[in-house]
Computed example of a mutant assay.
Amino acid sequence: MSNNRVQDLKPGDTARVVRFAKGDRGYRQRLLAMGVTPGVVFSITRVAPFGDPIEISVRNFTLTLRKTEADILEIERV
């Protein structure tokens, strides 16, 4: 069930990164450097009023992603 998108989740939802979609290699490298790796579990902390950006909690820190940035993550709900 890896066709879920981060922006479809609501605050409190938890998901696992399955893989990265093809996209900006530089941005993918930045996510990896911040600990967003395949297999990592994260939760949605907050979503802005119009759904952009989205704040996630991963590896004991929060990270804010724009919808376009979050599209690179292929996830599954946990």
Results as ranks from 00 to 15, higher is better:
Met1Cys: 04
Ser2Ala: 13
Ser2Ile: 06
Ser2Glu: 12
Asn3Val: 02
Asn3Ala: 08
Asn4Val: 08
Asn4Gly: 02
Arg5Trp: 12
Arg5Val: 07
Arg5Met: 14
Val6Lys: 00
Gln7Arg: 12
Gln7Ala: 03
Asp8Glu: 14
Asp8Ala: 09
Asp8His: 09
Leu9Ala: 03
Leu9Lys: 07
Leu9Trp: 00
Leu9Ile: 00
Lys10Thr: 07
Lys10Ser: 10
Lys10Ile: 10
Pro11Asn: 11
Pro11Val: 08
Thr14Gln: 12
Thr14Arg: 12
Thr14Asp: 01
Ala15Val: 05
Arg16Thr: 15
Arg16Asp: 11
Val18Gln: 07
Arg19Asp: 07
Phe20Ser: 01
Phe20Pro: 01
Ala21Lys: 07
Ala21Pro: 00
Lys22Gly: 04
Gly23His: 06
Asp24Pro: 08
Arg25Gln: 15
Arg25Thr: 15
Gly26Glu: 15
Gly26Cys: 07
Tyr27Lys: 14
Arg28Pro: 00
Arg28Gln: 13
Gln29Trp: 10
Gln29Val: 11
Gln29Ile: 12
Arg30Ser: 08
Leu31Thr: 06
Leu31Ser: 03
Leu32Asn: 10
Leu32His: 05
Leu32Val: 13
Ala33Met: 09
Ala33Gln: 11
Ala33Lys: 12
Met34Glu: 12
Met34Asp: 11
Met34Trp: 05
Met34Asn: 09
Gly35Ser: 04
Gly35Asp: 02
Gly35Arg: 09
Gly35Leu: 06
Val36Tyr: 09
Thr37Cys: 10
Thr37Asp: 09
Thr37Met: 12
Pro38Thr: 06
Pro38Glu: 08
Val40Leu: 06
Val40Ala: 13
Val40Glu: 10
Phe42Asp: 05
Phe42Ala: 01
Ser43Ala: 10
Ser43Asp: 11
Thr45Tyr: 07
Thr45Cys: 03
Thr45Gln: 12
Arg46Tyr: 04
Arg46Gln: 11
Arg46His: 11
Ala48Pro: 07
Ala48Tyr: 11
Pro49Arg: 05
Pro49Gly: 02
Phe50His: 05
Gly51Ala: 01
Gly51Leu: 02
Asp52Lys: 01
Asp52Trp: 00
Asp52Leu: 00
Asp52Thr: 00
Pro53Asp: 05
Pro53Val: 02
Pro53Met: 04
Glu55Leu: 06
Glu55Val: 13
Ile56Trp: 03
Ile56Val: 11
Ser57His: 13
Ser57Ala: 12
Val58Phe: 03
Arg59Trp: 00
Arg59Glu: 08
Phe61Met: 09
Phe61Tyr: 11
Thr62Asn: 14
Thr62Trp: 01
Leu63Asp: 03
Leu63Val: 07
Leu63Thr: 04
Leu63Arg: 10
Thr64His: 00
Thr64Asn: 01
Thr64Gln: 09
Thr64Ala: 03
Leu65His: 04
Arg66Asp: 08
Arg66Phe: 09
Arg66Glu: 11
Lys67Leu: 08
Lys67Asn: 14
Lys67His: 05
Lys67Val: 13
Thr68Leu: 11
Thr68Glu: 15
Glu69Leu: 08
Glu69Trp: 09
Ala70Tyr: 01
Ala70Ser: 12
Ala70Pro: 01
Asp71Gln: 10
Ile72Tyr: 01
Ile72Phe: 03
Glu74Val: 13
Glu74Arg: 14
Ile75Gly: 03
Ile75Ala: 03
Glu76Leu: 10
Glu76Val: 15
Glu76Met: 13
Glu76Asn: 13
Arg77Ala: 11
Arg77Cys: 06
Val78Arg: 14
